[in-house]
Design a protein around this nucleic acid. Structure first.
Lengths: 188, 188
DNA sequence: TTCAAAACTAAGCAATTGCTTAGTAATAAT
DNA sequence: ATTATTACTAAGCAATTGCTTAGTTTTGAA
C-alpha cells in the first residue's frame, strides 16, 4: 500500500549519535545531522519528531553501546576492584577519538546544557548515572569485608573520578590520564 | 573633544563573565550580553571587537578572580597537602551557584568547544591549566621527602581530580562532592 | 490497472544568530 | 560659538537556526 523507508532508523541514529558525541548538542545543526545521517530533514522529522527526539534516540543508542562494551564486561569480571580499574581503561578506549578523547556523551551533555537542560534529556542522564553507580556498588560489594558506609563513600569517589576522567581525557595526554587512573586505585 | 563612555569596561566585563560562566559560550547570545552588561551592541563591539573578544576579556577577569580567591590563599598557606585540600574546598565555594555549582569557566569551555575551539581561546585555557598545575607542584615540593617522579604523578592526579570536581559539582550533591574530596586526599 | 497511503525532494517559513551602519547627542580644545 | 571627535540609539544586514509544507514518486492491496 505504502512506500518503503529507504533507511534503517537504528542505523542513521548511530550516525547521529556519533556526531552529537563529537560535536555536542547545541552546535550540531539539523543540516549537519542531515548530511551525517544521509537522510532528508523531512525523513528525520517524520521518524523522530524533532531535534530533541533525534538526540533522545541517540542517547538510547549510546546506552546500548556502553552496555555492550563496558557494563557487560564489568559484570562478567570476577576480580573485584581490579575489574573497576579495567572499566576505567575500557572507557578510555570506548571514548577514543583522534589524539584526544571525546568523553562520555552524557557527561558532555550535562556539562553543556546544565540545569536548563530539557527535562526529558536530564532524566535520561540521571538514570544513566544511577546505573553506572549501581554497577560500581555491585562490584565493591563482592568484598565482604567492606561496611556499607565505606562502599557508599568509595562509590562516590569512583563516580566523580569517572567524570573527571571523561572531561580530562578531552584535554590531557595519555600519560596524565594513566597516572590518574593508577593513583585513583592505589588507595582502595 | 570627544564624548565620554557611560560605562566602565572592567565592570561590564565582569557581568559578561558571570553570564558566560552560568550559561556557556555558544548559548550566550549577543542580545543576552547586551542585557546583562547593560550596554548597547555598538558599545560592546567598539570596546571588545566581537563576541570572542568579550569572551577573551571575560577569561582575563575570571583569572583575576581565581588568583585573588584561590591561588593567593594557596600560596600563603604553609600546611602542605592540607593547603591543597583547602584549595579544593575553596573552589567549591568559588563556583557556587544555586543548588548546584557552575564549575570552572575554563573547564566548562574546553568541554563545550572541544578541539574545534578558537586558537586564542584554547591557548588561554592551556595557560590557565599550566598555572594551576604549577601552583600544585609548588605546594607538593614543600615536602622534601618526595622525589620528582612522585610529585609529577601526584600533580597529574590532583589536576584531573580538580577537573572531575568541576564537572561533578554541576550535577552531584554536596555530600558526594565532599566524599570525593576527602577520598582524594586520604592517600597522599 | 487503479488508487490511497506513506516516503521522498526541495523550496521556504519565521525567528534568531553575530555584526554593521546611518543618524543623533555629548564632549572639550579651538 | 564652532568644530572635530567620540559615544550613543536603533534600525537593519546576511546567514543560520529548527521546522513545515507543497508537490512528486514509490508502493502494494483492491
Amino acid at each position: 500500500m505504502a512506500r518503503k523507508k529507504e533507511y534503517i532508523e537504528e542505523e542513521v541514529i548511530e550516525k547521529a549519535m556519533n556526531l552529537f558525541w563529537r560535536n555536542g548538542y547545541e552546535t550540531t545543526s539539523v543540516r549537519m545531522l542531515e548530511k551525517e545521517m544521509g537522510i532528508n530533514q523531512f525523513s528525520m522529522y517524520s521518524s523522530f519528531g524533532n531535534k530533541q527526539g533525534v538526540f533522545l534516540e541517540s542517547i538510547k543508542c549510546y546506552k546500548k553501546k556502553a552496555k555492550e562494551e563496558l557494563f557487560d564486561k564489568l559484570k562478567q569480571s570476577t576480580n573485584g576492584i581490579e575489574a573497576i580499574k579495567e572499566y576505567f581503561y575500557n572507557f578510555i578506549e570506548f571514548s577514543k577519538e583522534t589524539r584526544l578523547n571525546k568523553g562520555c556523551l552524557l557527561t558532555n551533555t550535562v556539562n553543556e546544557l546544565g540545569e536548563y537542560a530539557d527535562t526529558l534529556i536530564m532524566s535520561e542522564i540521571v538514570k544513566f548515572a544511577t546505573d553506572v553507580k549501581s554497577h560500581i556498588i555491585e562490584k565493591l560489594e563482592t568484598d565482604k569485608q567492606k561496611d556499607s558506609e565505606t562502599i557508599s563513600k568509595q562509590a562516590n569517589y569512583l563516580m566523580v573520578s569517572l567524570q573527571g576522567l571523561s572531561v580530562a581525557s578531552k584535554m590531557f595526554e595519555k600519560q596524565q590520564i594513566e597516572d590518574f587512573i593508577e593513583s585513583v586505585f592505589e588507595n582502595l
